[in-house]
């Protein structure tokens, strides 16, 4: 079972308290009616699905209830960092240098 750091509670807690919520940094378009069918399809369905570092959303559903973002390695399942929703994706090179 993973341990996950909630950036709002500032506490590292068992995975049981959290729910996965898909890839991060996919903003809903401000005016979907302006999008072509292809652009809308991409927004709806196309995801990066990387082998390695993945920016993804989690919700501390059995805790503070808030959504936040995380960088997780999909191979090792290791979390590099978690950060509040709305914040930009952290610079990975800086994170790895800090380790």
């Amino acid at each position: 079972m993973l341990l996950i750091h909630c950036p709002y509670c500032d506490d590292t807690l068992p995975e049981l308290e959290f729910a996965y919520a898909g890839e991060a940094h996919i903003a809903r378009p401000a005016d979907p009616s302006k999008l072509s069918d292809e652009e809308w399809r991409d927004f709806l369905f196309i995801r990066s699905n990387p082998r390695g570092l993945h920016a993804e959303r989690w919700r501390h559903i059995n805790g503070c209830g808030r959504f936040f973002n995380a960088l997780r390695d999909t191979v090792s399942d290791r979390f590099l960092t978690t950060y509040p929703a709305g914040h930009p994706r952290p610079d990975v090179t800086k994170l790895e240098a800090a380790e």
Binding site: A21, R28, R59, I61, F67
Partner: peptide, 13 residues
């Protein structure tokens, strides 16, 4: 409720 929270927190804060 989860869906509402999702939109409220992350799309329309």
């Amino acid at each position: 409720l989860n869906m509402m929270e999702d939109y409220l927190q992350t799309e329309w804060p």
